[in-house]
C-alpha cells in the first residue's frame, strides 16, 4: 500500500467495515463490481501513443515513447518494453516528489509483468537487426488523481496507450551501421490484451476494486493479470493479510469472470489506429 499519512477515523473505519460485512460498499457498489471506466486516447501529440484513463475518480495518464538501442546480450533478437510509473505529488497529498518509492516501482513492475508474460507484444517484432539494433518502448504512467486501485487503472492506461501507438518503421542500413527510417509509420501489433483485477481484503470480506477509503483500511490485496484466453498470467500479493488456498482459487475464478466482462465493456481494440 501507499505510504499513508492520512489517518482514517475509527468512525469511518467501523462504518466501512459494517457495510462490507453486510455485502455493501461505501459508494453503493456490489462487492464484485468495478467503478465506471472512461478512456481517452492520444491526448499528447508528442507521444507515439497516449491514454488518459479514469476509474471512478482515480486517474492515470500514460504515454508511449520509443528509442533505438542495443539488445540485451542474452536476447539478441528481442526488443525491450519498459513500464515506469510516477507517483506525482499532483495526485494526492500523500505523495511526495523525489525518486520513485517502493510502491511506485512495485506498481510499474506488476503492470510490466502483465504486459510481458501475456506475450502482449511479441518482442521479436521489435527487433530491427539481431545483436545491433532493437526498439526500446517506454511506457510511462503518471498517477494524476489517487482515489484507490492505481494498479488496475495503470494497467488499462498502459495497454490503451500501447494500442493507440504508432511507431515509425525501421530497417538496418549496413553501410552506415545504424537503423534508418523506412518511411512508414505503423501501429504496434498487440497480440494479447492483459487486464489487471485487484481484490482487497478486510478481515474476512473480499471485494474487487477498492476505492480510497477502503484502500486505506485494507489488510491486504491481490492483483491478478488475466489475458484474453481466460488465463491468469501474473499475481501479486500486497499488504500483510494472509490468504487461504481456497480463497485464492475462488477469487482467481472471479477475476477471470470480471476481466471477461470488463473486456467486453471497454472494447479496447477500438483504440487501434488505422494503418496509413
Amino acid at each position: 500500500m501507499i505510504d499513508v499519512n492520512k489517518i482514517v477515523s475509527s468512525l469511518e473505519r467501523n462504518y466501512i467495515l459494517k457495510l462490507l460485512k453486510e455485502g455493501k460498499r461505501i459508494d453503493g457498489r456490489d462487492l464484485f463490481e468495478f467503478r465506471e471506466i472512461k478512456i481517452k486516447t492520444n491526448f499528447s501529440p508528442k507521444a507515439e501513443g497516449s491514454a488518459d484513463v479514469f476509474l471512478g475518480d482515480t486517474r492515470v495518464m500514460c504515454g508511449v515513447k520509443y528509442d533505438i538501442g542495443k539488445p540485451y546480450s542474452d536476447n539478441p533478437d528481442q526488443g525491450v518494453v519498459t513500464v515506469m510509473s510516477e507517483y506525482v505529488p499532483i495526485a494526492s497529498p500523500m505523495f511526495e516528489s523525489g525518486p520513485p518509492r517502493e510502491d511506485s516501482i512495485q506498481l510499474a513492475r506488476v503492470v510490466d509483468r502483465g504486459i510481458r508474460h501475456t506475450n502482449c507484444i511479441n518482442k521479436k517484432d521489435l527487433c530491427i537487426e539481431p545483436f545491433k539494433a532493437v526498439y526500446i518502448l517506454f511506457v510511462d504512467c503518471y498517477m494524476m488523481d489517487y482515489f484507490g486501485n492505481l494498479t488496475d487503472t495503470a494497467a488499462i492506461a498502459a495497454i490503451a496507450a500501447l494500442l493507440s501507438a504508432k511507431i515509425p518503421g525501421a530497417k538496418w542500413d549496413s553501410e552506415k551501421g545504424e537503423a534508418v527510417w523506412d518511411g512508414t509509420i505503423k501501429p504496434l501489433t498487440i497480440h494479447e490484451i492483459p487486464l489487471s483485477i485487484t481484490f482487497g481484503r478486510v478481515g474476512d470480506v473480499i471485494f474487487v476494486d477498492p476505492c480510497l477509503p477502503e484502500e486505506l483500511i485494507l489488510d491486504g490485496s491481490i492483483a491478478f493479470a488475466v489475458d484474453e484466453k481466460k488465463q491468469i498470467t501474473s499475481i501479486q500479493k500486497y499488504g500483510n493479510a494472509t490468504w487461504t488456498v481456497d480463497e485464492i482459487m475462488e477469487i482467481s475464478e472471479k477475476a477471470i469472470e470480471i476481466a471477461d466482462d470488463l473486456r467486453k465493456k471497454m472494447n479496447l481494440r477500438q483504440y487501434t489506429p488505422k494503418a496509413s
Partner: peptide, 17 residues
C-alpha cells in the same frame, strides 16, 4: 513550485528525473 515534464511530452523521451 515544482515544474516537471512528462517523459512523453517532448520529441525525444525525457528522463523522469
Amino acid at each position: 513550485v515544482y515544474y516537471r515534464m512528462a517523459t512523453f511530452s517532448v520529441h525525444d523521451r525525457k528522463s523522469p528525473a
